[in-house]
């Protein structure tokens, strides 16, 4: 393969590794902007991954699989919403429960699908543009979910900062008391934001099991849900920076795989630590500037809202 060919294939794997993070982090960003911290991303991604895989295998339709993945993970998010928003439970604890539950549930559901192959999602080349050398394959020859992930980032950025509904969502996240006093439906807004977050995590999961590694394996997300949570902090709650962060992390993941491939004399496990260590490093770098975090973080994140109190 030529140097350019290698370059293109590396970029493609980076994009591929970044996409599940991008979906999950963008969804979580919207939930957090409305003031809800959902630590169940990992669990929702796994449920999305197993649902997408199972439905695609059984029905033969990847489209149906992807839709069902979003719905199933959305169902998990609804459960989270009911317990935290209607029953006013602690969001941290409930999110942890959601992850523990999702890990178990996906393994039970996926038991009979372990080892089954599935066709990876087809690549959709944009006619004409895909033929451009280098840029064509990098930008215009992906499967539908990769296009969708980037479109969703743009859509979320537009929604949050350019629409009235987005303004309401941010207001609810910054001061639920004030938003409630003006007459905005705090709980309904949060339900919708949490549901969106769930559906996006489900899409991220479906991408893992249908495109990134077209198979189902127990715990196949390997902490990506948690990395997505860290990405939201890294991005200081800005959609465009989530995009940047996700691709950086995709790069780290691929760097580690390539280092293993080249045969660097380090145990593979040590290289596999890299994404997790980088996550910690990035969290530290961002969090140390407290003024910046306070400026961008939704003020009501993680706080219970009950109109009578």
């Amino acid at each position: 393969m030529s140097d350019i060919g290698i370059f293109v294939s590396v970029v493609l794997t980076v994009i591929s590794a970044a996409t599940p993070l991008l979906f999950a982090a963008t969804g979580e960003l919207v939930a957090e902007k409305s003031g809800v911290l959902n630590l169940g991303v990992e669990g929702m991604m796994l449920v999305g991954a197993v649902t997408g895989f199972a439905v695609t295998t059984v029905s033969g339709s990847a489209t149906l699989g992807i839709v069902c993945a979003a719905l199933a993970a959305g169902g998990m998010a609804l459960l989270f919403g009911f317990i935290t928003l209607t029953l006013l439970a602690n969001q941290v604890a409930t999110g942890l429960a959601l992850t523990l539950f999702g890990v178990g549930l996906s393994s039970v559901v996926g038991q009979s699908f372990v080892g089954t192959p599935v066709d990876a999602l087809p690549k959709l080349a944009v006619p004409g543009l895909a033929a451009i050398p280098v840029l064509g394959p990098i930008l215009f020859e992906h499967d539908a979910l990769i296009y969708l992930s980037v479109i969703m980032v743009a859509a979320v950025a537009w929604f949050l900062y350019r629409t009235r509904a987005g303004l309401v969502l941010r207001a609810v996240g910054d001061s639920h008391e004030a938003a409630h006093a003006i007459g905005h439906p705090v709980i309904r807004v949060r339900y919708l934001a949490v549901l969106f977050g769930g559906a996006m995590a489900g899409l991220g999961g479906a991408f893992l099991s249908l495109s990134y590694t077209p198979m189902w394996g127990e715990n196949m997300t390997a902490g990506r849900g948690w990395i997505a949570l860290a990405l939201v902090v890294f991005a200081t709650w800005r959609p465009a920076r989530v995009l940047l962060g996700a691709y950086l992390f995709g790069g780290v993941t691929i760097l580690q795989l390539h280092a293993q491939g080249v045969g660097i004399e380090i145990p593979s496990q040590v290289l596999s630590m890299l994404p997790y260590l980088v996550t910690i490093l990035v969290l530290v770098l961002i969090s140390r500037d407290q003024a910046k975090v306070r400026l961008n973080a939704p003020a009501c994140i993680g706080k219970v809202f009950h109109p009578s109190t």
Binding site: A97, L100, F101, G104, L105, S106, V108, E218
Partner: peptide, 14 residues
Amino acid sequence: PQGITGVFQGMILF
């Protein structure tokens, strides 16, 4: 499958 333990554990906490 072993995952059933996780389902029960998650359910208790919920």
